[in-house]
């Protein structure tokens, strides 16, 4: 069984900006371990002859020509913003770092 500690879960939750209670952390540690084990079984099936892949379809080089296309107006861009000022998105003060 994979080793997923409560601290690992707390760390992941923090990275993902998800607030979790003490009980949730405990429960999730066990559940994540099961999930990791389940995914691990894939590597048992795939031998060294199967290359790692990041995309299910064998495509490459899907490009766009460098031609200006669709643009939003500032009003459209800001229409879903919780807050705006001077045609810019307004966000709370950023405290942790520059």
């Amino acid at each position: 069984m994979a080793e997923i500690t409560r601290d690992d879960v707390a760390h992941l939750a923090q990275l993902a900006r998800i607030e979790m209670s003490a009980e949730e952390l405990d429960r999730m540690a066990g559940e994540l371990a099961h999930i990791v084990d389940a995914v691990k079984s894939v590597s048992e099936v795939a031998g060294p002859d199967v290359p790692a892949t990041s995309h299910p379809i064998a495509l490459s080089n899907v490009f766009r020509e460098d031609v200006v296309g669709h643009v939003l107006t500032p009003e459209e861009a800001l229409s879903g913003a919780p807050d705006a000022e001077d045609s810019r998105f307004k966000v709370p003060a950023i405290l942790d770092e520059e």
Binding site: D66, V68, H70, V71, L72, T73, A77, D86, S87
Partner: peptide
Amino acid sequence: NTKTKMFSSAPNAFGDDPNTNVNEVDL
């Protein structure tokens, strides 16, 4: 200094008014 962005067709330009060179991909 391409005409458009890396992953969207919005213009790559300096000094324009705020949020005039954006589309859904950039946002």
